[in-house]
Design a protein around this nucleic acid. Structure first.
Lengths: 187, 187
DNA sequence: ACCTGAACACCGTTCAAGT
DNA sequence: ACCTGAACACCGTTCAAGT
């Protein structure tokens, strides 16, 4: 490894957690992927819970940066909304993985509280970003941007979940098109 | 137990799986809840995979029966669509539990194939039922009923997932209202 | 500074044994 | 017919020890 082990652990853990969840993430498989022993992970992270928090935090930060980059790349809010599902789509193209926050939303009952906080923050970032675009694009009455934003976030999450359960990327695209046809998303 | 152990195991396993998933379901806790020992479960189910299939199958059947009952109870397809989210809502009111099929959709990679088949069947039943109501209610052009039906199913699943992650039942209701305001669901 | 092997109480599972 | 205790290879975790 040219990069340090801590980064390699974070990256590998994120990939595993997006495929098998927090519960499905185990230190022996993770260590194998990084090329060290399970006990060595404890040198970098004091517990599975702390590793989970670090993975979720990094995930949220990377996602926030990607959303900001998209907003900067195109100032057109309608284009931003049209491209918003791409992030969720790319998780599916990456071996049918899913959004870490969605998987962990399902695992809510078995999650340490600090991880839950990160998951909520992820949703907050997405809803706030969507609300800004919805407001700029004027696709709903004033005061309804927040409501439409969380509806879009929830709906896209559900589309990804359904597509994943069938390992069917085309289904994700179809559902997004259905949302557009129904008027939830602009066309 | 006045009912037999097999039924008690199925019922308890369903409740646990809706809260912690298939991976979070473990034989010692399950046996404790039923009042037997972990090894005794194997008298009724040959493996965790077979128990999981039985739970998922029963869940799908119960849901199909509930949807049929709703359709019979009221012949009005608009009323049916208005009440469709109730099933998902009641899972949340039951200790913030979620749809078994949604949880298992997330767990897809770690699921035995027979369970995956049940999960797909659950979605098929829901989409078919929704498509019938959408067609009857004439809320979309002919030929678009299936598309709208899967959009509704995916969207409601996503709303439940988001509400669960915040343990916020009111959020579920708000998102459903948002879907109605956006035109995805009839008002 | 970073890693390891061996040990611990937990999982699914098996099996011989109980009633 | 239905249940059990003890055992197995797996988990997260600890810790003393290595380089």
């Amino acid at each position: 490894m040219s990069t340090n082990s801590k980064e390699a652990i974070l990256t590998a853990a994120r990939g595993i957690a997006q495929a098998r969840g927090y519960g499905g993430l185990n230190f022996r498989d993770l260590a194998d992927e990084v090329g060290i022993k399970a006990a060595s992970i404890y040198y970098h992270f004091p517990s599975k819970a702390e590793l989970g928090v670090a993975v979720a935090k990094r995930y949220r930060e990377d996602n926030a940066a990607a959303l900001e980059a998209l907003a900067v790349e195109t100032g057109d809010p309608a284009v931003c909304l049209k491209r918003y599902p791409e992030t969720f789509r790319s998780a599916l193209t990456n071996d049918n993985r899913m959004c870490l926050a969605s998987f962990m939303a399902a695992e809510h009952d078995d999650l340490p509280e600090p991880i839950r906080i990160e998951i909520r923050a992820f949703a907050d970032v997405n809803v706030a970003w969507l609300a800004d675009r919805v407001t700029e694009a004027k696709i709903v009455d004033a005061g309804q941007s927040q409501a439409r934003a969380r509806a879009i976030f929830a709906a896209i999450s559900g589309a990804q979940l359904m597509a994943r359960s069938r390992d069917d990327l085309a289904l994700f695209d179809h559902i997004v098109a259905d949302y557009q046809a129904a008027g939830l998303l602009p066309i």
